[in-house]
Design a protein around this nucleic acid. Structure first.
Length: 109
DNA sequence: TTGATGACCTGAG
DNA sequence: ACTCAGGCCATCA
């Protein structure tokens, strides 16, 4: 049973697992946390207790937009571009290419 | 405990 | 392609 009591805590943990040059969506992140509170994820990130430890700027929306950011959307876009992600007018060109996938299904390997 | 808010998502015009 | 409205879940006061 996934303890959904500390959702924020889990968000930060997963974000830390996201490497540079990769991004994820609030929806996928919520799914990875075994929940459906997409908005809750956004709110948790908006609180952002550790903006330096948690790469919340690598979290974008499902429609391809970068979404929002504590320092501003522009700052978020700039960071993404520095990571090597192509962003144009608040939108990611190759979202599917930079989209990060969690180890939700370990399988046999 | 109830009420209101949100860095969202999906569907329809 | 873009805009408008509704809904869903969790967190905060």
């Amino acid at each position: 049973m996934k303890t959904r009591t500390d959702l924020p805590q889990r968000c930060y943990a997963l974000l830390k697992n996201i490497p540079a040059g990769k991004v994820t969506t609030y929806k996928l992140l919520a799914e990875a946390l075994d929940t459906q509170a997409y908005q809750a994820i956004g709110q948790i990130l908006s609180k952002n207790p550790d903006l330096v430890r948690v790469p919340c700027h690598r979290v974008v929306k499902s429609n391809g937009e970068v979404g929002g950011y504590a320092s501003g959307e522009a700052a978020k876009i700039a960071l993404l571009q520095q990571e090597g992600i192509e962003v144009v007018d608040r939108r990611i060109h190759n979202l599917n290419a930079v989209l990060y996938v969690f180890n939700d299904k370990p399988s046999k390997n």
